[in-house]
């Protein structure tokens, strides 16, 4: 495992691969805190008539129960939410944040308890000043509670696999006859270039015909300069087809590449 002084936490797992978790910044965390605070205040306000009724009906017992419920809501609501929602509170859900274990493992209940118990120290002397200062100097943006509990707050990334297959299905790719050139193309094209070309194909029908010709022309010329395919492979090929072939070459599954 390693960490760097950027907004991500990189975790290398025993399987030999690494993945990164984008760390949450102090602003988003503060906003999430205020959302939680507002929600808690709203819940307490909403429950006030119920508390009043409990006190009137239950008398002494009602007052006692009210005090305990308020205590649990104020001190334990974040803890309970993080336990039930796998490291998220309402504020964190809204802001797309999540508390996770700093080693990428599953969040343990004891970690949730400790990071919330230490919130009192982080909040000293006012408005989370101590916790804020500590997190600014921490490579993992951890406040004291996170440091002790071994947790980090990360931004949740909603990612889905790109639907490349549906775009490229059923199209013949003349580049496949030139495996060594395809390999060179994959090597030379950067992730940003390949993403640009893919998006140009995905949004094909959204483009005006003139703009489409212009964009595909620019992209095809750009890729032509990267690798020169023989004339028989590109003879009479439109710019759009050229881009399509490039994208198919880059995104084709490894198994297909091996078979070819």
């Amino acid at each position: 495992m390693s960490d760097q002084r950027t907004a991500t936490l990189n975790i290398v797992i025993p399987e030999g691969v690494s993945f990164s978790l984008p760390l949450a910044g102090p602003i988003t965390r503060s906003i999430a805190f205020f959302i939680d605070f507002a929600t808690m205040s709203a819940v307490l306000s909403t429950l006030t008539p119920i508390f009043t009724a409990m006190q009137l009906i239950g008398g002494d017992t009602g007052v006692g129960v009210t005090i305990l419920i308020q205590f649990i809501i104020i001190e334990g609501s974040k803890m309970i939410m993080e336990l039930l929602w796998r490291g998220q509170t309402i504020g964190k859900k809204v802001m797309g944040l999540r508390v996770v274990d700093e080693r990428g493992l599953k969040l343990r209940p004891s970690q949730v308890v400790i990071r919330n118990l230490l919130r009192f120290v982080d909040a000293l002397p006012l408005f989370y000043a101590l916790g804020g200062i500590v997190s600014l100097f921490s490579s993992r943006a951890q406040r004291l509670g996170d440091l002790a509990a071994g947790t980090v707050v990360v931004r949740t990334v909603h990612s889905s696999p790109p639907d490349v297959a549906s775009i490229l299905a059923g199209k013949f790719n003349s580049f496949r006859d030139h495996a060594h050139l395809e390999a060179r193309l994959r090597q030379k094209v950067t992730p940003e270039e390949s993403q640009l070309a893919l998006h140009a194909l995905v949004r094909r029908d959204e483009l005006e015909s003139g703009a489409r010709v212009k964009i595909y022309g620019a992209l095809a010329n750009h890729f032509r300069e990267k690798v020169k395919f023989p004339d028989e492979a590109i003879h009479g090929m439109s710019d759009e087809q050229y881009v399509r072939n490039v994208v198919e070459t880059i995104f084709r599954s490894r198994k297909s590449v091996a078979r070819n």
Partner: peptide
């Protein structure tokens, strides 16, 4: 590889979730 960043991000999410579940059990 110079592959799709979105795909890489998607796989990282899968691997991260799988790692957490398997190694924490």
């Amino acid at each position: 590889y110079s592959a799709e960043p979105e795909l890489k991000s998607y796989l990282e999410t899968l691997v991260g979730a799988g790692y957490a579940e398997i190694h924490s059990s």
